[in-house]
Every structure is written in C-alpha cells, then in structure tokens.
Design a protein around this nucleic acid. Structure first.
Lengths: 341, 341
DNA sequence: ATCCGCATAGAAAGCGCTTTCGTAAGCGCT
DNA sequence: AGCGCTTACGAAAGCGCTTTCTATGCGGAT
C-alpha cells in the first residue's frame, strides 16, 4: 500500500536531532559531532532512508548526473565509448543518463533539451557532427546557453561545437590506411562509406584522398559508395561496388561495422578475402580481431576516449575549449594482402 | 559569465501573467485561455526557457526518467536490450539512466540505490540473477521498498525478484539446442559456459541436461568448462576443452559472445568448423549471422525484450507480478553439421 | 434586472532538501 | 572570574516548480 518513503525529517526526528544536523550528517559535511553523525547514519540505515536527489539538487547541491548522447548504442563504436563513460562515471559516484540521436539533428536537439531540463552536471556528446554547420546550429546554441548557465559540455569527434573535445585524427587515420593499401600494390580501390554529410566520413575520406594523391591517384576516379553506416549498409555497398566494378582489388569500409557487412557479402559472392579482394575497416571494434579473416583496420581507443571525454567534462570550464587528440594506429591483420599478380 | 537560466517566474513576468498560469501553459494542462497559453509558450521559447525537472518532480509531478541496469553494456546481448529500451523510451518522452552492475551483487545494490535516490519512475533490470538467492536479498529488499513507495520495477530474465518480468525460456532454448546437436549425431559434446552461479547458465544447462537424458546421455559425463561470459572466455574455454578432450565433435557455448571466441580459437588451432567440430551459440546477437561460419544459435528477440520490459514497467502495478514469456527459436546456420563419419 | 454556474486568473502552500545565520556551549587564556 | 575564540546545533529561508484554494468575470436562465 504505497506508503511514503522516509524523509530526512523523519530520520532527524527518529534520531532526536534537527533536520539541519541530519542533513550535515548524511552529506558528510562538517558541523556535526561524530557521535550525532554516527547516530543519524545508523537510524537512516535502519529506516531505509535514501536522499531525494531532486530535492538535493534543487536546494543547491551540484547535480551528480551526467548526460551522454550517442548516435546509436547498438553501433559497437558507441557501445565502447558508453562503456568507458559508464565505468569511470560509476567509479566517481556519478549517474549517467543516455540518449539516442540516431544521427538526426532534430532528435539531437530534443535529447539535449531533455538533459538541460534535468540540469545535468555535464553533457557529453559522442558521434560525428555534420559537415553542414547550419544543421547543428540550434544544438550549438542550446549547448552554449547550457554552458553559460554553468553546465559543462564535452564532445568526441566534433570540432565545431565550441566545447572541450576528444578528437580522433580521422584524417591521419584515413591517410595511413590508404597508404597501407597502396603499399601493398592496390590501385583499384573502392570505398564503402557512411553519409558524407558526417564530418567523420568527410575527414577520413580527405585523409585517404591525400594519400591517393601522393600516389598519383584521384579519389574522384574511384568508386565511393555511400550507404548506411551499418553491417547491412556494408553488405549493400559491396554488391553495388562489385556489380559496377568487378575489377576492384580492395574495398575499404569507413567503419568496422560496414566492413563486417563487406566481408559477409564477399563470402556470399564467393570472393575470397584477401585472395581476390582485400578488405579494411576503421575503429577496431572488439569483434574485429575475431572475424574471419581478422580485420585490418585503424584502431581508435574507444573506451579510453569515453573516459577521457568524461574527464574533460568533469574539469572546471576553461576560457578556451580544450582539445585532446587521440592516438590511432593501423592494425594490420589478415584481411588485406597484395593484390593478385 | 555563468548567468542564470530563465525560471518559470521570469517567463511569467515577461508574459505578464501569474506563475500559476505560466505553469499551466507550459505543462499543457487546462485552466488557461488559449491566448495566454500561446503567449506564454512563445515568450518561453524566446527566452530559451527549459523547465527544471528537479523542481517539477519535487513539486509533485511524476518522474519522467526510468532507470536501466545491465551487467555490461559492451556485451551485445545487453546492448540490444538497452537499444530497445532507449528507442521506446525516447518515443514516450522518457529519459533513461543506465548503470553497470558487472554481474556483481554489491555493485547492483549501489546502482539500485542511485536510481532510488533519483526517484525514477521505474527500475528496469536486465541480466541474469544469481542461483544463490541470499546474494541478491539486499537488492530485493531495496526494490520492494521502492515498489512500496509507488515505484515500478520490471526485470528481464529474473524470476526471483518479485517483480514484473520478461522471461526468455532458457530451459527450453537449451533443450532445443541440445536436441539439434543430438539429431545431427553428436555425442561427444563439450560446453563453454559462464559462471554457474548465474541462473541463466543454470537454466540453459538444465534444459540441455534434459535433452541429453532423453538420448541416454548424462551431462555430468561431458566436459563443461566454466569461464568468463565473453569472447576471451570462449577462447580460453576452447583451449581447455581441446587440450583435455581432443575427440569432441561439438562445442556448445552458452552465449554468442563466447561462441565467437570458440570460433576464433578453433581457427587458431587449425580445426575446421563445422567439418571437424560443430559450434553453437545462444542469443543470436546481430553479428552472429555475419560470422564465418555463420553461427547456429538460439534466437532471443533482445531488442523486443527491451521494449516489452519497458512496457511492463510503465503499466500500473498489479497485485501479482506479471510474467511475459519470450519466444525463442533455434536458428540453424553454418557452424553446425553432422560429425565426421 | 437578478441569480447561479462555469471558466479563468492569481495567491499561497508546500515538495524535501541545503545552507546561511544566529545562538549556546565549551575551551584556553589572562 | 572574565574574555574571546572555536565548534555544535537549530530555526528558517529559500531552490523552482505544481496544485489546491479562492476570487473574479462572464454567460445564460429565471
């Protein structure tokens, strides 16, 4: 029969002290004798008292929850990042609220508003921004208002939000990946990419273009198929590529999820990897090394990025946005090899 | 220049109405003329007003956030479930707070307390319980107090918590999996399992034992290797199994993550699948069909389970805990075949 | 014209906490 | 004994909302 939860005043009464003393005892601040503090805590424990965060926050305590926005939790890239945030957050006694944005600026705005409404201590956004700055202007404005009100914001992989950022070097990663394929001797390379409206895709592609140019190739002459940034997208892209260009010797997917789809599609068509076609990914999601063939990819330390972005979010604001560059490394496994003579 | 956020009273003043009218206008309740409601909303929009959830909840509004506890977000089983909860939650305008329990009853208790402190509308717990009921008694008590106070609780795969539950039939799933292997002709089957302290493992194993018994076999005579419920655990379990029992014709992993590790370990040892050894998983995580060979497994509709558990959590409490049985189905792919003559 | 009822507006009382602020008590000094 | 100092404690003022409760104005019915 839905009876009321014990409140601080109930605890105070039961312990025979004022509510002020009880508050101090529970929050561990000074101004209470050890004897009273102990008594209050004991009584609180017996009564099953759990402080009301809403009341606490309202009364002036700093919020202890942080908001995390990801494009899609099912994408292993975001899963890993979320894991990092969750782990470090729990360790610091923080609560985390997660929202999905689905790579949709409108949904993103809605989610940001929800976090603002909850007066979270910090908002962390993971996931590519949009090449078209206009599209994310409303979000940016909302975030700025949030910061003006004392909130903190930190992002992963977004340069244009005027917030502290953890930045993977997508450009350099793309370059070293392309260099690897070129060094193996590949020239007819196809690309399975996510929406080019995403900065992540644009940046990786730019790095690739740079490497290609050094080898006298032009990215514009090569097949670049834009698809969903998912396994299914990778599968579809592969069929599109092979139907139009049966002579490619390598397919570079711009994230591992797509690469998994590429691998499956090639298998379905009876194309051997890396015998007939080499395949590469990007991110190095945990499952990449378990695939067959084990995936050559560019490693991004996703879980660590999650921890770092939370660290940034917890630091007091600085006058200029901080940026933390993330190391990346080419991980050569079994899915790439020299093209057949 | 951390300036203060606009409050409801600021909006009310700017619109020239009382704070009560402004409140009604913003929350869409009756008692305001359309003209005033429209004006207030316009002014609020201009001022960038976002209601303070803490104040709103404190004042008596129902909480709009729900808490979700998973063992480990990185485990695709939980990722999928979380995705389902997140999607349906967003659709209903709910906010979700996620916590990690790491299969540790103490951490679980801490996380439950945090959710209680946040006075969430409902607590959703996904993930296996413990065979030893004593170990989760404190959590159960806390949840009961939460429910007594009007909170809602719904769980996935836990029968012993006295809450509404979505229940995959692990027993039947285990049975049909074992029947499949037996039907193919396998007799020397090894099992790579997670901690047997988990009810999920115990239930699946019980179903398997039942099928084996029907075929005149005793599970106790077969190798059952207990390891971490992860890819790495599956890998280690495989080596342990093969070192001690080189003659097994099938390895059944009790979740897909372990199966992925089994596949990789077999490949590393040069054992062909399913030629020399058949491999099966459990759950049917999204990547299962993309593996090579594509994994035979028992499908659990994880995302749907996430939605269902949220649905249960949103319904008013009933006198007796509701249970929603989840369908499962054996998905036969390429990783199982008849043992070599 | 008078009265009743309804819809709309505002005043004010909290929701459960934290935190000044004021007071009382205890201490070591001179 | 008297002084100032520190420390322990409680009263009370909010934090920003929702929600009674009360007051006002209007229409229609008499």
């Amino acid at each position: 029969m839905t009876q009321r939860r014990a409140r601080l005043i109930d605890v105070a009464d039961a312990a025979g002290v004022s509510i002020a003393a009880a508050s101090r005892a529970m929050s561990g601040s000074t101004g209470v004798s050890d004897a009273i503090a102990a008594r209050v805590r004991r009584v609180a424990g017996e009564m099953g008292y759990v402080a009301n965060v809403h009341a606490r926050t309202l009364a002036g305590g700093a919020s202890t929850t942080i908001g995390l926005l990801v494009h899609e939790i099912g994408d292993p890239y975001f899963t890993e990042i979320a894991g990092g945030v969750l782990r470090l957050g729990a360790q610091q006694g923080l609560t985390v609220q997660i929202g999905h944005t689905g790579r949709d600026p409108d949904a993103e705005l809605t989610q940001v508003r929800a976090l603002v409404a909850n007066r979270v201590r910090a908002i962390v956004i993971a996931g590519s921004g949009f090449v078209d700055a206009a599209v994310q202007a409303p979000v940016k404005a909302e975030l700025q208002a949030f910061q003006a009100g004392g909130g903190r914001v930190a992002v992963i992989g977004r340069h244009h939000l005027g917030a502290d950022a953890v930045l993977p070097d997508n450009h350099a990663g793309g370059r070293s990946l392309a260099e690897h394929l070129l060094a193996l001797g590949h020239r007819r390379i196809a690309f399975a990419v996510g929406s080019r409206a995403l900065t992540t895709v644009a940046d990786r592609l730019a790095g690739i273009a740079e490497a290609l140019a050094s080898a006298g190739l032009d990215l514009d002459d090569l097949p670049v198929v834009e698809e969903e940034f998912t396994r299914a997208g990778g599968r579809r892209a592969t069929h599109a590529i092979l139907d139009a260009h049966p002579d490619v010797t390598a397919i570079a997917a711009l994230n591992d999820d797509m690469a998994i789809g590429v691998l499956a599609a090639l298998r379905a068509r009876g194309v051997s990897v890396p015998g007939e076609v080499s395949v590469s990914g990007f991110d190095d999601v945990p499952v990449a090394e378990y695939l067959w063939p084990a995936l050559t990819t560019v490693r991004l330390p996703m879980a660590e990025m999650g921890e770092q972005v939370l660290e940034l979010a917890l630091k007091p604001a600085s006058s200029r946005p901080r940026r933390r560059l993330t190391g990346h490394s080419l991980v050569v496994r079994d899915s790439t090899a020299a093209p057949r003579g």
